[in-house]
Structure formats: C-alpha cells, structure tokens
Design a protein around this nucleic acid. Structure first.
Length: 114
DNA sequence: CCATTGACTTAAG
DNA sequence: CCTTAAGCCAATG
C-alpha cells in the first residue's frame, strides 16, 4: 500500500463531513465538495465514498446525489441496506429515491457554517 | 504518459 | 425534471 500521505487529506475531510451528518438527514456530493472548497470535484467525493463505504464510521448511505437518488446503493455489500437504513432513521425513501428530499436535505456549508 | 472511467454538478435549451 | 455539453480530478488500463 501507500505509506505516504498525499492526497489522503481530501478523503479524510470527506469522511469527517459525512460523519457529521445527523441521523434522518441526507446530503449531496456537491454539498460536501463545496464545503471542502472544491465545488467542482463532486466526483472525488464519490470516489472517497468508494473507499469509505465499508467503514462503519462513515455513513455513506446518508450521501445521495443532487436529486436525492441513492446512486451509490449498488456499491454497497447489500444494496438494499442503504434504503433500509435511511427509512429506519426517518428518511422516506421510495424506489431508491428520497421523497421529500428538501425536507431531509442537510447542507454542511450551511449547517456547519456557524 | 495518454486515454478512459466514475457513488457528480452546473448551465443552457 | 429531461437532454446535451462541459468541467472536475483521482484511479486504472
């Protein structure tokens, strides 16, 4: 593996933000990227999630795309787990998409901006 | 080293 | 919200 810390910092930041997402809330990749100062690198957030989805400390299931669609569910060990977890926490999900998305939306650049 | 891909977003129509 | 186009940057081939 890589014993040198290089670009890991960005990933760490992503994990940190995702960990701060309160239960019953979801956010978008772009919101996280924007909070980190890279509004355009939303793909990197997804890439970071790809490395973090197995980590129990990082609730990747609370991160969806901008339309509230559970785009990452297919990358989990149990794709159905994502929807289950969200529903269990109070997020209404139907057909892999968050209903009432704006109601459950949690923007780090706003909520953590205090 | 260049090309392609990817858990995305934004803008314009 | 749909489509098309372009931007974004790390990882992979």
């Amino acid at each position: 593996m890589n014993y040198s810390k290089k670009t890991t910092n960005f990933f760490e930041d992503v994990y940190d933000v995702v960990r701060l997402i309160p239960p019953g809330k979801v956010t978008s990749y772009g919101a996280i990227a924007k909070y980190l100062g890279s509004s355009g690198s939303s793909r990197m957030v997804g890439w970071a999630m790809n490395a973090a989805h197995n980590l129990d400390d990082v609730p990747a299931y609370r991160v969806v795309n901008r339309t509230g669609l559970l785009t990452g569910r297919n990358h989990f060990d149990n794709p159905y787990k994502m929807e289950e977890m969200l529903v269990k926490e109070g997020v209404s999900v139907n057909e892999n998409q968050v209903t009432n998305f704006s109601k459950h939306y949690w923007d780090p650049s706003i909520e953590l901006a205090l």
